[in-house]
Design a protein around this nucleic acid. Structure first.
Lengths: 214, 214
DNA sequence: GTCTATAGGTTGATAGAC
DNA sequence: GTCTATCAACCTATAGAC
């Protein structure tokens, strides 16, 4: 590849393996900022600084490219996996919840652009959904995660024993998701705002507080 | 240029103008089942049983058509407006909440296909968002609605006075939204399920119950 | 592995008859 | 108002040189 003049940033900060990754990055960027409907192999190649033929060489066809992009866009999910989510008895519930909601928030922010773009094509969406299924990914994982955390806190006596942790987990994840989704939809001008993350976390903490000896 | 939403008023009862509506219906259907990326003026015309030229005659260009479709797809929002949401003191909180969540659920189910399709194109999304802004529509409206309901219930003594109704409303709407969104994404094969609507409604009702005299 | 050049098909949009 | 016929532009994908 002839990157003679101050070519592709391949310095210390970008250990990019070459053309293949450039194409992936370009596709990811275009997908996020222009949407699926405007994504053409030509534009991807142009943005990546490579020829269009290279796109087909590396990914077979356009669908192959998009699937690869989706997988790349799914990466941030791994950062949501940590088992560090087990609560501690000496921290206020609201603090832990704030951290959790904050982590989910930034995860959604990164994942939504890709997922929403994929959502524009029925076939791609189906392929994507299948991929999620076989990896056992999807929104339910976030709910599971929070559910497990809440159950742990319940055993520590920091959550009302009669509380439905599973449903509560859905409430929490749903709130984060809706906030992210609205931000994604509204772009620059957020319009009327929804309740903040910390406010919501505190509200949940209060609702979940044990009812013993009020 | 043809008017977008207001009817053509062709004659007293406006029974005519079959073509325009056929086009709108066809576009709406195609958008829902195949996504934006696969929506071509040719397919719309074919499905509507009219010529392609008619599409351009009525809507100017493709963007005009899509904007009209979005407006049409936004219609179901009006069904979520009713002020009948004021709670009664003689009904269990869980029952009212189940009704509310159920209504939101079916609203999202109808609105999501269009909104998600629009989401696939950055320009359309921006135009759509602007439209939402000037009409003061969007997710925050649902939150407002539920918030108002909860506040009413609080005044009736059926909800704990210290509860944050605004944040709680976000939790409820978010849960409904996430459930709908997952269903939309996963299609036929829902995969691992999230907590059900009624279960969630009951959980919220329990969390919100007044703490007096336990 | 990457390029240039191009084939073959689709798209959005227009012109003009009726 | 609706149609048929058509165009120029664009798209995906392939062939072949290097």
């Amino acid at each position: 590849m002839p990157d003679l003049l101050g070519g592709p940033k391949r310095g210390p900060g970008r250990p990019s393996e070459g053309v293949r990754d450039s194409i992936l990055d370009a596709a990811l960027a275009l997908l996020s900022e222009s949407g699926l409907a405007r994504l053409t192999t030509r534009q991807v190649a142009s943005r990546a600084g490579v020829s269009e033929a290279s796109v087909f060489y590396h990914f077979g066809d356009k669908v192959g490219l998009l699937q690869a992009v989706v997988l790349a866009g799914l990466e941030p999910l791994k950062q949501l996996e940590p088992a560090t989510l087990t609560g501690a008895a000496d921290r206020p519930l609201a603090d832990s919840l704030s951290e959790i909601t904050s982590a989910m928030d930034s995860f959604f922010d990164r994942a939504l652009p890709v997922v929403e773009a994929i959502n524009g094509d029925a076939d791609l969406r189906a392929a994507f959904a299948e991929r999620l299924l076989e990896r056992d990914l999807g929104p339910h994982r976030g709910v599971q995660l929070v559910d497990r955390y809440l159950t742990g806190m319940k055993e520590l006596g920091m959550v009302e024993t009669t509380a439905d942790t599973h449903a509560t987990a859905l409430l929490i994840v749903g709130a984060c998701f809706l906030r992210s989704w609205q931000r994604h939809l509204m772009g620059n001008d957020p319009g009327p705002e929804l309740p903040g993350l910390t406010e919501t976390a505190h509200a949940v903490a209060q609702l979940l507080a044990p009812r013993t000896a009020d």
